[in-house]
Each structure stands twice: as C-alpha cells, then as structure tokens.
Amino acid sequence: MNLYQRLATLIPFLLLACANLAQATEDLEIHDAWAREAPPGAAVMAGYLTLHNHSSETYTLTNLQSPQFEKVEIHRTEERDGMTQMIKVSQVILGPKDSVRFQPGGMHLMLMKPKKPLKAGAKISLTLSFSGETSMQVTLPVKKAEASIHHDMQTHMH
C-alpha cells in the first residue's frame, strides 16, 4: 500500500468523524456557559453551562478536556447528613429532548489545576465527548460572579 492508498483508507473515517461532529452540533446545543474566576489561592475553578438535546437520540457525556487544565471533572454539590459535599459524577445521560443544567450549588464542571491563571475576561476552550465518538467544543468566558446570574435559577433548585 502506498502512502496515498493509506490515506485513502482514512477518508471514510474522517468523513464519519465530520458527520458525527456535524450531527452533534445540530442535535446538541450549549448555552449560558461560563466559568467563575478563581479567587486568590484556589487551584480549582467551577464551570457552568446548559446542555440541550434537541434530537430523539440519547447522548451520554463521558469525558471533558481542556488544554488549559490538567483535569476536568463533573461534580455535584449535594446536601447530605447536614453538610455540603461534592460528589464526583462519572457520566451524564441526556435523554431525547432533555436538557441538563450545570449551575452553582448543583452539578458543575471542576476545572482543575489551570496551567496558567485565568482571570475574568479570559476564555476557556472545552471539549465535551459523548459515547459513540461524538464530541463538541464550547468556549467558557471567565467571569466574576454576578448576583443577577443566579436569580433565574431559584426555580430550578429543589
């Protein structure tokens, strides 16, 4: 097999990858993405976003990565035994027409060990990977928290 033949064998995979990406972009939508500026001394930032699934398929979010952080995890803040705890979430299942909200005091992205400090105004690029090799890119602007952001969440917190 010469080089061109080798490359040619890759084409279907590349097309498939593109198709997956395009499909995910159409099926899934992300908005209200932002990350909280880390206060001095904090080595972890919290990120928030809303993920919509417009399709009739089920998507399972399995992995998160950002070139700006050593590790990205999903955690859920939970009240247990009279204390606030953080529980690691290994995957998020997004059913047909479902949406999931990552919000303060609830499920959130743990952006761990930034390679460089990120102040308000910076942008974080994040890749969300779903089972079935679908992935999606999102940019999270870094902000200082604003009280107004939280208010419409009140009705969604139980």
Binding site: A43, V44, A46, P104
Partner: peptide
C-alpha cells in the same frame, strides 16, 4: 478556599 462551587457562590452573594 479550595471549595470551587458553594463557597465562592455564597461569598459573592
């Protein structure tokens, strides 16, 4: 201070 979610949220409120 290493608390990324509840503590900074509460302190900023």
């Amino acid at each position: 201070t290493h608390c990324p979610d509840v503590c900074p949220t509460t302190l900023s409120e």
